[in-house]
Nucleic acid binder design. Structure first.
Lengths: 189, 189
DNA sequence: GTCTATATAGCGATAGAC
DNA sequence: GTCTATCGCTATATAGAC
């Protein structure tokens, strides 16, 4: 949400810059000076747009939530619940190389936020909760009573393989696991 | 590996203290002063035992590797490959509450190390590689040609559910996923 | 050989200049 | 309303005391 005009998109650039750097380096090693520099904004100037570092991180989380909403809305245009769920899996497949390099953008962020005190400590649940709830509803559309468990199993399979792909710097771990999960979804339908 | 005598176990205590604090807070927020205090060692004295913070973290990684070796050796005393693999799954089940509070000790550590430069950036692969290789060999004992994929699928299911259990602060995510994985292993045997 | 006092540096945050 | 100079804190690391 841009506050007013006069921004010249600097706030958005700062959020985008923070997203990139946090994905690559993690939250703690990412300094506000680096975020500013990468966004072509005068260093030290970040505090005009965000009153503390935590607020910038919070903005990044909000950005991921709205990004998730867009992706999920797009997936719902697919024909069947099974194809929607397989489409979700394929979302990570498309960025397998980036995941192998730096991990899943939201998964690795959640891992770090989970260890934070304060409001940010619960922020990860907002992003992953949005996606998990969506998957659960789609499994229910498939007529599955155990939809909550299945949604968790799917998300676990995705997030776990992202962690392994990153740890072993091997994008094929994602692609092979993706095949595995898509077959599994078909077997349920 | 203790260098010499005269230690009075301080080095071991520092490693144990670092393991605990890193698990709870992450690597970056854990200060050497806090590690020393928690280990009842004079602050600032850490540098006598470890020449840099990275060396302490490296010692923690080595400790997890030897811990993994012990656990895997113990699991190999079980009768069948399938029971060994299910035993691996149950290893996380036994610490489900801790996982819900602070994440999987090695999984969350790997997530953070994956974003580090230098030798530590590859350290996570040493721990998870040890376990993954073991699982792969056990799947092969089951006569599975696709043992590498199955090992990754199993580890993904475990690590992914650990991340979700931590994110949602819900230990039952681990227990339910564990049931799911054990059934899956049985279906392969 | 064991430990402590201190140097150094870098970051987040603020007060105030333009 | 927009941005910059600077403060104060904290953490790693070292030099040297016991």
């Amino acid at each position: 949400m841009t506050d007013l005009v006069g921004d010249a998109g600097k706030r958005e650039r700062l959020i985008e810059s923070a997203k990139t750097l946090i994905h690559q380096q993690g939250v703690h090693p990412t300094t506000l000076a680096a975020v500013a520099t990468h966004a072509n904004v005068p260093p030290g100037n970040v505090y005009y747009y965000f009153k503390a570092k935590d607020d910038l991180v919070r903005a990044v989380v909000d950005d991921y939530i709205s990004q998730a909403n867009s992706i999920l809305a797009e997936l719902d245009r697919l024909g069947t619940p099974a194809s929607r769920l397989k489409g979700l899996t394929r979302t990570w497949l498309h960025v397998a190389d980036t995941v192998a390099d730096h991990g899943c953008p939201v998964g690795s962020l959640c891992a770090e936020l989970n260890k934070c005190d304060g409001p940010l400590g619960e922020a990860g649940a907002e992003i992953l909760g949005r996606v998990t709830d969506w998957a659960e509803a789609r499994f229910r559309q498939l007529g599955r009573r155990d939809a909550p468990d299945l949604a968790m199993a799917l998300m676990s399979g995705i997030q776990g393989s992202a962690l392994l792909a990153n740890t072993f710097r091997d994008a094929t771990i994602m692609t092979r696991q993706s095949r595995h999960l898509e077959k599994w979804i078909d077997s349920l339908a």
